Simulated assay, not measured.
Amino acid sequence: MKKIFIVLLVLVLSFNLLAAKTIVVGSKMFTEGYVIANMISLLLKDAGFRVEEEFGLTSFPLRAAIENGQIDIYSEYTGTAWAAYFKQTKNIYDPYELFNKVAEMDYKKNKIIWINMIPFNDTYAMAVKSKFAEENNIRTLSDLSKFVNAGNKVIFGVNPEFYERADGFFAMAKSYNMNVPKKYVKTMEAGLTYEAVSSGKIDVAMVYSTDAKLLKYKLTVLIDDKRFFPLYNPAILVREKVLNKYPEIKEILKPLTLYLNENIIIRLNYLVDVKGYEPEIVAKNFLKGLGLIK
C-alpha cells in the first residue's frame, strides 16, 4: 500500500511539474543585465510561472540560445541587435524607429518578438566632474565644444577602441566642431576613465551612460544634443511560440517599461556595484517597493 501511495505521489508531482507554466529566462553577464533579468524572473514567478534561469552569458551565446530555443526570454539592446546581429552600419537616432526596425527584422528572420522597450539608453557618453560642469556652465557636448574652442586646455580620456574607431572619438569631435589636438586625448581602459577624471588626471571621460560609477564619483554626463552616439535601449525578447502560448507575458512585464528609466537604473546598478548587494535582492526590493510582487 505504501509503495502504491509513493508511486501515485510521484505521478501527481510529475503531472504538476509538466502542467506548470515553465519559462527559461536568460541574462547577459554584467550588472544591468543581471538586474533586469532578475526583475523578469521575479515578475513571472509572482504571476505563477515556473522559471528556469540561464544567467551570465555573453551576447552571441545568449543570442544563439534564444534562436535555437534553449532560452525563451531575455533583455537585449536595440543598438546591439542592429549593429552586431543584423550587421547594419547606418545609425538611427529615433529610439522607437530603431526598436521597430530591429523588431521587424528579428520576427521575419527568427520568429522572435520584441516587446516592452525600456525607456533608458545605455550608450557611450562623455562625462565631467559635476563641479567642473557647474563652474564652466557646461551641460551639453555643444557647450563643451565652445569651451574647448575658446582655447581652454581640456584633457580627454577614452578607451583604445573608441580612440581608434572610425565612428569614435574624433568623429564625435568633428560632429561637434570641437578642435581637440591628439596630444590632449589619453587612452586607457574604460573602467579607469572614471577614476582619472575624478582625480583630475583628465578633464573629460568616456563613460557608459548608466554606469554606477557616475554616482560613485559624482560625475555629470554631458547631453549629446546633436545625437551622435548610437542608441542602446533595452527591450524584452520572447520566442513567438512562447508568447503565443502565454500571451499574458507582455502585460506581466509591462512594469519594466513603466517604472525603469536612466536615473533609476543607475541607482540600481550602484546598489550592486558600489554597495555590494546581490542583483536579485536589488530587483526584489525595487519590485516590492512598487507593490508589483508579494
Rank of each mutant, 00 (worst) to 15 (best):
F132R: 12
N91D: 11
F286W: 03
V25E: 11
S27K: 05
K174Q: 09
Y93M: 14
Y217S: 05
A64Q: 08
K284V: 06
I266Y: 00
V12I: 10
Y74M: 14
N100Y: 02
G69Q: 12
M188P: 05
K294P: 13
L237Y: 08
N100T: 01
T187M: 08
Y246H: 06
S130Y: 12
K90I: 09
I266C: 01
R63K: 13
A283K: 05
P95D: 04
V148Q: 01
A37F: 12
Y176P: 07
I266L: 01
I4M: 03
L237F: 15
A103S: 15
K183M: 14
N16V: 11
A125P: 11
A133W: 14
F147C: 05
F132T: 12
G291L: 09
V10K: 01
N16H: 03
Y85F: 14
G69N: 10
K45H: 12
V10I: 15
S59A: 11
D106F: 15
I112C: 07
E251K: 05
G69H: 09
K87C: 02
K21I: 13
D46C: 12
K129N: 14
D211I: 01
K108A: 03
S130K: 15
Y124D: 13
N159A: 00
K250Q: 08
V274K: 04
V238K: 00
V128M: 14
M117T: 08
G33Y: 05
Y184D: 15
Y184M: 13
K131Y: 08
P247N: 00
I6W: 05
M206Q: 13
E195D: 12
T140L: 13
F170K: 04
I4G: 00
L9Y: 06
Y277L: 10
I202M: 10
G26D: 11
E135P: 13
G289R: 07
E67S: 08
A20Y: 09
N16A: 12
K101D: 05
F229W: 07
N121T: 06
I73L: 15
K21D: 10
Y85E: 14
F132Q: 08
